[in-house]
C-alpha cells in the first residue's frame, strides 16, 4: 500500500515538475506546480507527517498557488517564447544539478539502515498522531526561530502594504 502510493505519487510529482518546465503557458506551469505540491502532500502523509501534509495542501496549493494563478489571470500573461537559454545555465546548471543529485543519493544510501527501522506504512492508520508533538516542540525548543520567522513575515506584510499603498 505504502509502496504503491509512493510509486504513484512520486511519479506524479516528477511528471508535474517536468510539465512545469516544458509548458509554455504560465497558467499551465502554475497548475503543474499545484500537482507537484499535492503529490508531495500525499508522500508526507504516507510517511506519517499528516499535519505537514495538511499544511502543505492548505498553505502551498490552497493559498500561495491560488495567488499565482490569480496574478497570472489578472495580468493575462500570454505564452512564453522559447529561447536557447543562457550559457551560464549550461555551464553551471547541469554540473550543479548533478552534484546535488549525487550528494542526496550519497546521503540516503549511506543512511539507509536508519530508514529500515522506521514504521513505513503503519502511519496510514489512525493510531499515530503527531500534531501535539509538533506543537510542543514548536513552542518550547524551537520557540525563538518560530517567533523570529513570524516577525520576518510580519515585516514582509508591512513592506507589501507600504509598496502597494497609493501616494496621497
Amino acid at each position: 500500500m505504502q509502496l504503491a502510493l509512493f510509486i504513484i505519487f512520486g511519479a506524479l510529482a516528477v511528471a508535474g515538475a517536468l510539465n512545469l518546465l516544458l509548458q509554455r503557458h504560465p497558467i499551465n506551469s502554475a497548475l503543474s506546480l499545484v500537482v507537484v505540491m499535492m503529490s508531495l502532500a500525499v508522500l508526507y502523509w504516507s510517511l506519517g507527517a499528516e499535519f505537514l501534509a495538511a499544511a502543505q495542501v492548505i498553505v502551498y496549493s490552497g493559498a500561495i498557488m491560488v495567488f499565482f494563478v490569480f496574478v497570472i489571470m489578472l495580468l493575462n500573461a500570454g505564452e512564453e517564447e522559447r529561447t536557447k537559454g543562457s550559457r551560464a545555465a549550461y555551464i553551471v546548471g547541469f554540473p550543479g544539478a548533478a552534484a546535488i543529485f549525487c550528494l542526496l543519493s550519497f546521503v540516503f544510501l549511506s543512511e539507509r539502515h536508519a530508514f529500515r527501522s522506521s514504521n513505513v506504512g503503519g502511519y496510514l492508520n489512525n493510531i499515530t498522531s503527531n500534531i501535539s508533538e509538533i506543537s510542543s516542540v514548536l513552542f518550547t525548543k524551537l520557540l525563538l526561530p518560530f517567533e523570529v520567522t513570524s516577525v520576518l513575515i510580519l515585516v514582509a506584510i508591512l513592506g507589501a502594504v507600504v509598496l502597494a499603498r497609493k501616494e496621497q
Partner: peptide
C-alpha cells in the same frame, strides 16, 4: 482521520 478538520479546510481551498 485524525486531521479531519484540516482535510476539509484543505479540500475547500483546492
Amino acid at each position: 482521520l485524525n486531521i479531519g478538520l484540516l482535510v476539509i479546510l484543505g479540500i475547500t481551498s483546492i
